[in-house]
């Protein structure tokens, strides 16, 4: 009972309710929202965004941010398409592994600038985003590279019970693995500590640089996987349009919306996922209701600002307890008592 009560009090529960209410409202206004095709589209979108979200959410919890994951995904999936095109005999799983490795290398490049050159993640990843994305555009010259491997493309068509796509199951698996690492391993727990108070974490023998390195490399791999799902669904790799769609920004907004702190150290994968569902129900809903695109663009920004304001208030409250000169607290208390 206690558990259920606790769940009812959480922010995540509030988000779930909001999502359901929103879905009901949209369906009431236009029943085609729950049409099979629309749901399938929604689940497809959730698939590649969800995979990217898993890596991004963990990064944010550790007090980092990666703005390059969109470009990494575009570049990584391009590697995949090019390998298949360049070596027609190559089995696609080999190409898949190689492209994931490319993603890991791009993650390492980010790590290099942060851990060795000592630059801040925000700016580094803006820069590398421009570099990776740029290289992808140079290679494709702005065009798409088609992928014609039936056994791979079929994965995009498979659906269980006619409506749950295989790629969605992949996404769920990825999210579960991330959740498992986060909640069930020492490393996962240390992510919260590093994100919550790096100084204190260091004193407990945790390495901030090592944590960051692992997470950025893993995020490089996850982003690429997200990019591959997109390729699988679109039957082509098109870096320019992928970057323009900015699924990584959606993932960041969803993560913050789902209660992961921008300051690091707080929030959970579950919340982030609910945030993503809410965001997508919202966006698809607007599309179904034929609302002009500008509303969803503006609202996405507004949601980010609101999520940040809430996050700011929360972490300020927590930090004030801990950081503000302890003496002041004491003086106040004395005066009161």
């Amino acid at each position: 009972m206690g558990r259920i009560k606790k769940l009812l009090n959480t922010k995540t529960f509030g988000l779930i309710v909001a999502t359901i209410v929103l879905a009901i409202i949209v369906t009431a206004l236009n029943p085609s929202f729950v049409a099979r095709g629309n749901i399938r589209n929604l689940l497809n979108t959730l698939s590649f965004q969800g995979v990217m979200l898993a890596g991004i959410a963990i990064l944010l919890m550790s007090g980092n941010i990666d703005l390059s994951s969109g470009a990494v995904a575009a570049m990584g999936s391009l590697v995949f398409a090019l390998l298949l095109k360049g070596f027609p005999g190559m089995p696609w799983p080999v190409a898949l592994v190689l492209s994931l490795a490319a993603g890991a290398i791009m993650g390492l490049v980010n790590v290099f600038f942060m851990n060795v050159v000592n630059l801040v993640p925000f700016i580094v990843t803006i820069g590398t985003s421009s570099i990776f994305g740029g290289i992808a555009t140079v290679i494709t010259r702005g065009n798409a590279v088609p992928v014609n491997v039936p056994s791979f493309l079929n994965l995009g068509k498979i659906a269980f019970f006619k409506s749950i796509p295989f790629v969605f199951v992949v996404m769920v698996a990825v999210v579960l693995i991330h959740a498992f690492v986060l909640y069930k391993t020492r490393f996962g727990r240390s992510i919260y500590m590093v994100g919550g108070n790096p100084q204190a974490a260091r004193l407990c023998g945790l390495s901030i640089n090592r944590t960051r390195a692992i997470l950025f490399v893993s995020n490089g791999v996850m982003s690429t996987l997200g990019g591959l799902i997109w390729v699988c669904l679109r039957k082509q790799s098109n870096p320019a349009s992928f970057i323009a769609a900015a699924p990584n920004m959606q993932a960041i907004i969803a993560t913050l919306l789902g209660g992961v702190s921008f300051m690091g150290g707080a929030g959970g994968i579950g919340g982030a996922c609910v945030g993503l569902v809410l965001l997508n129900v919202f966006n698809t809903g607007l599309a179904v209701l034929k609302a002009p695109a500008y509303i969803s663009v503006a609202v996405n920004g507004l949601l980010l600002i609101i999520a940040l304001i809430i996050d700011n208030v929360n972490s300020m409250r927590m930090r004030r307890m801990l950081m503000v000169s302890a003496i002041k607290e004491g003086a106040k208390k004395r005066a009161a008592s």
Partner: peptide, 26 residues
């Protein structure tokens, strides 16, 4: 007033401004 980091604040607002921009040219 809200102590946002300039990066994130201006990144978020640029999405809102973009919405406005699309609105006037819709």
């Amino acid at each position: 007033e809200f102590n946002f980091q300039p990066f994130i604040a201006t990144m978020a607002t640029s999405s809102v401004f973009k919405g406005f921009q699309m609105f006037i040219s819709w």
